[in-house]
């Protein structure tokens, strides 16, 4: 299948990219990894008039820790995360996610920031960013701004990025030694969108009670959701199976999925529950807390 014709811009600097975006406004789409956009264009479901290819922009492929945040530039590919030993050893949630996005070949091109900007209702990174309380750095005609992920993700395929703006970085708080996370996803096969998935992050107090919890679920609503009630239930409590059950139940409650070939609404809601539960058990296990 052949995409419709478009005008191609290959800026060599961020300024140049922003000026293209300013000039073409809603007619332009940013091309980063392109792993969702290009297939959509092949089916002519997307027919942007102008593509602004940011792949040649310098200095956007960095992964660095700065001011207590892990910063991933807009050209960090999923595989950069997947293959990083540092990520694997310390960022359990992010590492988990990086291994199950799309398929191994797609991950060589797909970008973390691009996925967040796409904000597909089944996106993996959105759930992780919610659970980890990530922030997005955005550049635009009005300069730079940083936005918490909950404000950045607005709706199905919609973010707070305005016309002429571009996301340049995602920031994940650096986890301390008492923090772990996990991503639990069920998909019908590799490469399928999630039937349901849950991202969890847990920080323990030295006394073993839960200091903070972050829970994001995806593929079970119009967009990835934070399970706030579950976080509240967990906060300050000693982790037990009953507690996890109660928290997981909150995911089932707020999930509001569309039935499709992946499952009925009822099934997906229940899977949101099961996967949050499993994610919590796995994250705690990584902190050497075994909840039987």
């Amino acid at each position: 299948m052949i995409p419709a014709a478009f005008e191609y811009k290959r800026p060599m600097s961020l300024e140049e990219a922003l000026s293209h975006l300013a000039q073409y406004g809603a007619d332009a789409r940013v091309l980063a990894g392109g792993q969702s956009l290009i297939p959509a264009m092949r089916y002519r479901l997307a027919q942007p008039a102008v593509l602004v290819d940011i792949n040649k922009l310098p200095n956007l492929g960095y992964m660095k820790e700065e001011n207590g945040m892990l910063c991933l530039g807009a050209l960090v590919r999923d595989t950069d995360v997947e293959f990083s030993p540092e990520i694997r050893s310390r960022y359990h949630l992010i590492s988990d996610v990086s291994m199950v996005v799309a398929d191994p070949i797609v991950r060589f091109r797909a970008t973390v920031v691009g996925s967040l900007c796409h904000n597909d209702p089944s996106g993996d990174w959105a759930a992780a960013a919610i659970a980890a309380r990530a922030q997005m750095a955005i550049q635009g005609p009005g300069g730079a701004r940083v936005e918490p992920i909950d404000r950045f993700l607005v709706d199905s395929f919609a973010t707070s990025i305005g016309e002429g703006e571009m996301a340049v970085e995602v920031r994940f708080p650096v986890p301390n030694a008492l923090t772990s996370g996990a991503y639990e996803k069920i998909e019908r096969k590799v490469g399928d969108y999630a039937t349901a998935a849950a991202a969890v992050q847990v920080e323990l107090n030295p006394d073993g009670t839960i200091k903070e919890a972050g829970i994001g679920i995806t593929a079970v609503a119009h967009m990835a959701l934070r399970v706030e009630e579950a976080e509240k239930i967990l906060r300050g409590q000693k982790p037990t199976l009953e507690l996890i059950r109660a928290a997981a139940e909150e995911a089932r409650k707020i999930a509001n999925p569309n039935p499709d070939a992946r499952g009925s609404a009822e099934y997906k809601k229940d899977m949101a529950r099961v996967l949050v539960g499993r994610g919590l058990i796995k994250a705690l296990k990584r902190l050497n807390v075994v909840v039987a």
Partner: peptide, 11 residues
């Protein structure tokens, strides 16, 4: 092939 599912090496 996103809706007609063919198994990969993993499944």
């Amino acid at each position: 092939f996103t809706d007609y599912l063919l198994p990969t090496a993993l499944e």
